[in-house]
Design a protein around this nucleic acid. Structure first.
Lengths: 259, 259
DNA sequence: CGGCCAGTTGACCCCAATCAAGGATCGTGG
DNA sequence: CCACGATCCTTGATTGGGGTCAACTGGCCG
């Protein structure tokens, strides 16, 4: 099998996800960001989980649904999005392998946004019943999950800052650096290159600007030698300039157990 | 004692909060939005809680701090905000009586934003130790709190939509309607009039626009007969127009136990 | 080969920022 | 009681960032 960078970067292929590796990205992240106990992780890995594959652009959860399962992204990328009355759409968050994008439905029934696969994805589904039982049995697991949703909330807050205050030029770099830091945690950054499988239209929807303007920002970033984005892959050209533009302070990601 | 609308609307006075009423707004909200068990609420009310008063504009929590307590807003208004390198500030959320704005610090130590009193406030502080013990002892309390942080996150997501996609005219009305719905839950709306003790500068920081522009939007809303905002108090003039502008779909507030 | 969708660029326009100058309100001290 | 300074509100003039519209390119796939 030839080296396929898109596979290595976790963009595409979903067929080679084995039941062993479903939990791998989540566990990898939890181990570095929390003091997760091995027993808790083992208990998680013992949960019954149903694998399902989704195609690019397929909707995983629709606004208004009442799912009876929570999903774990084993491979691929998803986004949360909301569409308002006039048809304009906002992307709320980007989700990567190891993320649990609808844990909140354990506590309230209805999803209040869409969850859409950006790339071909492999998702694992665990029933609420099993999760609730495990949480009661193992408070440590409850803590892990609760914390996860809290970091998710912290990321949303930073997203508000990004959309509300930063210039679009800074905004895009901030978004990219955040994604890189999160991808790093699950081993999806190779050689300062990583996947960001959004079209320019979708990047615009994440930033609150049009695709036309996104295109111009990307051109500027390319011309200025900061980074290149081609076919869903980012390559950083000048780390120093990138940092300067993004003004990224990663504390809100709470990457270590004590922060 | 004369009728003081600012007091009735929960804007100002903090001196008359008794230890009986500290928990009242939180309990009122939990009772309508969740199926909170009375025993769980009683256990909460039995927690040792330290009352502290804050003046308008006083900082309650500073970005980077590591608090050892969580706070409950007994009376008054606070905001979360973040300031970026160039000095621009974004208000992330508005907090009202009954809110628990830093529950997240139970799970990660460092606050990643500021918490500032908008008006004179009475806050109750409960130590992390006591909260963690209670949560272990009573899973029902853990569920209440976890759910609370999840609704907080849902509100942040809607805030992203507001800042990213809605026209500023719609944006302000949406913000106002959301606040009204939340204030209604804790009995702080009287006669379609309620407190929103933000300066126009702060409203601008909440919406990602300047105070000058906020002023013009408010003028338009007044001229169009939609609503009036004077000295921190909103009066709705035309509910129909307001609804039309705000396009408010309150599902994300998850106001009933099953939603 | 042809259709389709993402990306690219130019021309034009409008919403909101910026800059600037007054006006209203309020707490404080003479 | 009035003078004051501070803060917030208000409005006009000007500028600029980003939206809109439109045309064209290029890669991919049936």
């Amino acid at each position: 099998m030839l080296f396929d960078p898109r596979r290595a970067l976790g963009r595409g292929g979903s067929s080679d996800v084995t039941s062993d590796s479903i939990w791998a990205p989540l566990f990898q992240r939890l181990k570095t960001t929390t003091g997760a106990a091995d027993q808790d992780l083992q208990a998680l890995a013992a949960l019954p989980i149903a694998l399902r594959n989704y195609r690019e652009n397929q909707t995983v959860l629709r606004d208004g649904e009442q799912p009876s399962e929570c999903c774990l992204i084993a491979d691929g990328f998803c986004v949360r999005s909301k569409t308002i009355a006039d048809g304009r759409r906002q992307i709320l968050s980007i989700h990567i392998p190891g993320d649990l994008p609808n844990l909140q439905n354990l506590h309230y029934g209805t999803v209040d946004h869409d969850l859409v696969a950006l790339s071909d994805c492999t998702l694992g589904f665990v029933g609420h019943r099993a999760l609730k039982d495990l949480i009661r049995e193992r408070p440590g697991v409850a803590d892990l999950f609760w914390r996860d949703t809290l970091v998710d909330a912290a990321i949303s807050r930073e997203w508000i800052v990004n959309v509300g205050q930063r210039s679009t030029y800074n905004r895009l770099t901030h978004l990219i650096v955040e994604l890189r830091e999160r991808l790093r945690l699950v081993g999806r950054v190779i050689d300062n290159t990583f996947a960001i499988p959004l079209t320019q239209e979708q990047l615009g929807e994440a930033m609150g600007v049009t695709s036309v303007h996104t295109n111009r920002i990307l051109r500027d970033l390319r011309v200025d030698g900061v980074l290149e984005l081609q076919r869903g892959t980012v390559r950083i050209l000048n780390e120093h300039k990138l940092q300067e533009l993004a003004q990224f302070d990663g504390r809100y990601l709470h990457l270590s157990p004590l922060s």
